[in-house]
């Protein structure tokens, strides 16, 4: 199970704590304008939210990290106890490899070239498929939301294909793509594309018309509106879609590798199962968990970086 990875995903937030938004009151507004100096300074008071002190923030952050790491350690300890004490109450933990067995297998695999090759292979597949899905999903999401005509032409087939789980496209992918590699990337693409496209479309529709009106009254045309309003304004929604898309993309790349891969973490995990090497299965699963966590955390981090402008509650770093 990828539970340890899920637990660790939360541990990212303190690292991304936003820096204090400057010191209020240091600026000297309106020095040049008649009788405005005073009014400008007065309005600064409610202008900038008081930031928590740096020390308090660090202490809270350290406490947060301690709790998160402790949670992860407790999970592993429970697993160790369940397996070494041969607990068998409905669930047969006595059959499950213990963390120490998995760690030993992991150490052995780290000494082989195959392990890194598998990691690299899966990573390349996910990045290629996901990047294509991000570009196509955002572009199409914007197009169908902004143009009645494009929506009428493109939405019917898209809406029919959308409910099909990407993994159900495997037979088709094997049929039409010259290599398995392309097929797997296609499955990954198909999985990530729909959540990204749908989120983008909704984000564009939910955009306040005020921003667009403002840019138009500055003489901005369609391209200006697209570049200065639609793309930045939809980023929060788009990143929601990217996060979901990345999750689904992992599910599908691993499944596709299990079915038709010759390399990759998914293939290796399934292969270990067929030769009944359970410690290796768990090494594979943990690797998938960690890889999945790293990629979704990267998306999350990038999303927060790019949407710093969003209003947020005081002291809230999420």
């Amino acid at each position: 199970m990828s539970t340890p990875a899920l637990g660790a995903a939360d541990a990212l937030s303190p690292g991304t704590a936003t820096p204090a938004s400057g010191t209020p009151g240091t600026a000297s507004p309106g020095a040049g304008t008649t009788g405005l100096g005073a009014t400008g300074t007065a309005s600064t008071d409610d202008g900038a939210a008081p930031a928590r002190t740096g020390r308090g923030r660090t202490a809270a952050g350290a406490r947060g990290w301690a709790v998160r790491l402790g949670s992860l350690a407790a999970f592993v300890a429970l697993w160790q106890w369940l397996t070494t004490a041969d607990v068998s109450a409905g669930l047969r933990f006595d059959r499950l490899p213990s963390p120490t067995e998995v760690a030993a297998e992991f150490a052995r695999q780290l000494g082989t070239g195959t392990y890194y090759l598998d990691l690299a292979q899966s990573t390349i597949r996910i990045i290629t498929g996901f990047a294509l899905a991000a570009v196509a999903g955002i572009a199409l999401g914007v197009l169908v939301a902004r143009s009645r005509w494009v929506a009428d032409v493109l939405l019917p087939p898209i809406e029919v294909v959308r409910p099909i789980p990407a993994i159900a496209l495997v037979p088709i992918a094997i049929l039409v793509f010259p290599t398995d590699e392309q097929g797997i990337v296609f499955i990954t693409f198909a999985a990530a594309f729909f959540p990204i496209m749908v989120s983008t479309r909704h984000a564009v529709r939910a955009l306040p018309t005020l921003w667009e009106d403002a840019v138009r009254t500055m003489g901005g045309g369609r391209a200006h509106v697209l570049w200065n309003v639609v793309l930045p304004g939809t980023l929060p929604g788009v990143f929601g879609g990217l996060s979901v898309g990345m999750g689904v993309a992992w599910i599908c790349v691993i499944s596709a590798e299990m079915i038709s891969g010759e390399f990759g973490v998914g293939y290796r995990t399934w292969h270990a199962y067929t030769v009944v090497d359970y410690p290796a299965v768990l090494v594979g699963m943990t690797s998938i968990g960690v890889l999945g966590w790293v990629t979704s955390a990267s998306i999350e981090l990038l999303g927060r970086r790019l949407t710093r402008w969003l209003p947020r509650a005081e002291g809230n770093t999420r």
Binding site: S21, G22, T26, A27, S28, P29, G30, A31, G32, T33, L36, G37, T39, G40, S43, T44, D46, G47, A48, A49, R308, W309, L310, P311
Partner: peptide
Amino acid sequence: IARVGLAGFEDRLPRELSGGM
């Protein structure tokens, strides 16, 4: 920006300003 009395606030984001600002 200086003319409207906001010199020193050039690099602030709108969310960091009051309604009047």
